[in-house]
Design a protein around this nucleic acid. Structure first.
Length: 458
RNA sequence: GGCGCGGUAGCCAAGUGGUAAGGCCGAGGUCUGCAAAACCUCUAUGCGUCGGUUCAAUUCCGACCCGCGCCUCCA
């Protein structure tokens, strides 16, 4: 069964296939800028793309999917961060790259097959080459300060993805743009391919394209150059968050297609934003969460993953702390269900409807709904092997008991005394000690042969 | 102002031209000395508002109201 996925360019559901029948399916996903910890909105995109990656591997075979996700490690924000902290650019980007990798691992996102960095010397050369290609073909021009801009009017296809020609700039936005760039650009919609060095950039500069000054690449060129280098001039699928649709992806198309003379991406996919308490996350609203923020509140990364999958990827998803509680409970239900399953023996796959929901435009909430429908049926048709297969497709890991932590000695002592009282059938004492434990923030779970302690639920 | 998305039970959230998946929470029950867990049952005559098309609309069309996002370097 084929995967159907919405294509942002044609605005319809289209089946995913590699360009060459039985060839490798090439998948490029725009990655993070590594200057700070990624927030859960960023991770919504990466988790959604991770499910897509897993689905592609099921469809075409793991060996026939090549997944690339870049790291933006040179831009205004990374350079500013390095300057503010008095560190080198690589120190800063290395630190946040490591953090990003740790967070991805916690969320059980598969690492991409390649993860190119914009500031990698090899890739910097490729970016410079592409800029020179665009200069040669007349799609770009140099300015007096040694920067290079893409000439939007030279590419008739510009705006096809975002339909930008139908847009009208808001007066305020237009004025702001003019103030910032009027001195250099020929046209307000032209964008930077190469930015000449400025004192604020500190030591961060590289040899530019011919005829241009030392400096650094513009943001968009990295994806065009690196995807070409690793995946070829035409890629099968390109994805990212909706906010990248314009101008980032529009600009990538312009650069790549003008230089390469061929289709850049055969299929475009954009996941919608995560909202927190009904609003876009922002520092000023105080609703921006990182994985660590949520861990501090006692939520597991797997609950975050589940919550991020609980809404359709192409719809804004309202993320709340309540939705995380719901996710923890849902995962617990799945964990308990798994314990009831036989190890193997079932030949047909009862969980096929879950996969079918994913194949129909990556409908993760419908998939989770289908999963629970089957779980609730308890018809004896499932086994752990089939259940684990579907969990693997969703990337869900049911940790044995993620919340259990060992109790302090004094709590243990009280618990021991209560257990003894219970065995002696001194229930008055036992109940009093249970209250004492509760007052200390712990609850005691009795079993036939002993007990365990858990932090009391809030 | 332009472009786009959405408004479904207390919360989150699928979905369909023929009468509403699922999760969470909540309620009742079984079982446990109690508690927890587990299991069972229940929880929208209704899908923003008003019109229209239709035998039939939450689902199609129109208008309106409300919310959200983007509009040059934010996933």
């Amino acid at each position: 069964m084929a995967i159907k996925l919405y294509d942002s360019l044609t605005r319809e559901l289209r089946e995913l296939h590699p360009a060459q029948p039985a060839g490798v399916f090439t998948f490029y996903n725009c990655g993070p800028t590594v200057y700070a910890p990624a927030h859960i909105g960023n991770f919504r995109t990466f988790v959604v793309n991770d499910v897509l990656r897993r689905l592609l591997e099921l469809e075409f075979g793991a060996a026939n999917v090549k997944h690339v996700r870049n790291l933006t490690d040179v831009d205004d924000k990374t350079i500013k961060r390095a300057r503010d902290e008095g560190r080198s650019l690589t120190e800063v980007t290395k630190r946040w790259t490591d953090k990003f990798h740790a967070d991805c691992a916690a969320l059980n996102c598969l690492p991409p097959h390649e993860e190119p960095r914009a500031a990698d010397p090899k890739h910097l050369r490729e970016q410079v080459n592409m800029i020179e290609c665009l200069l040669d073909k007349g799609n770009a021009y140099r300015t007096a300060d040694g920067s290079v801009y893409f000439k939007v009017s030279s590419f008739p296809g510009y705006g096809r993805l975002s339909r930008v020609k139908e847009r009208e700039l808001q007066p305020g936005a237009a004025l702001k743009t003019l103030a910032a760039d009027a001195d250099e650009k020929e046209d307000g919609s032209d964008f930077a391919l190469w930015k000449a060095w400025k004192p604020d950039d500190g030591p961060n500069k590289w040899p530019g394209p011919k005829g241009a000054a030392e400096g650094r690449p513009g943001w968009h060129i990295e994806c065009s150059a690196m995807s070409k280098s690793i995946l070829g001039a035409t890629i099968d699928l390109h994805s990212g968050g909706v906010d990248l649709l314009f101008p980032h992806h529009e600009n990538e198309i312009a650069q790549s297609e003008c230089c390469n003379g061929t289709t850049f991406a055969r299929h475009w996919y954009h996941s919608e934003h995560l909202l927190v308490d009904g609003k876009k996350m922002s520092k000023s609203l105080g609703n921006l969460y990182t994985l660590d923020d949520l861990a501090t509140k006692g939520f597991s990364p797997m609950a975050v993953r589940y919550a991020l999958l609980s809404g359709h990827p192409r719809k804004q998803l309202n993320f709340t702390l309540d939705s995380l509680h719901a996710a923890e409970s849902a995962l617990h239900t799945l964990r308990a269900y798994r314990a009831t399953l036989p190890d193997a023996g079932v030949t047909h796959d009862v969980f096929a409807p879950v996969l079918a929901a994913l194949q129909e435009d990556l409908n993760t909430p419908a998939a989770l709904g289908a999963l629970f429908t089957i779980v609730n049926r308890k018809d004896g048709q499932a086994d752990t092997a089939s259940f684990d297969r579907i969990l693997l497709a969703l990337g869900l890991v049911l940790a044995p008991n993620p919340r259990r932590i060992s109790a302090p000695a004094e709590i243990q002592a009280i618990a021991d005394r209560r257990w003894a009282a219970k065995l002696a059938k001194d229930f008055a004492t036992a109940d009093a000690l249970r209250k004492e434990l509760a007052a200390g923030g712990w609850s005691m779970l009795d079993r036939k042969d002993g007990f365990s302690l858990e932090p009391a639920k809030k």
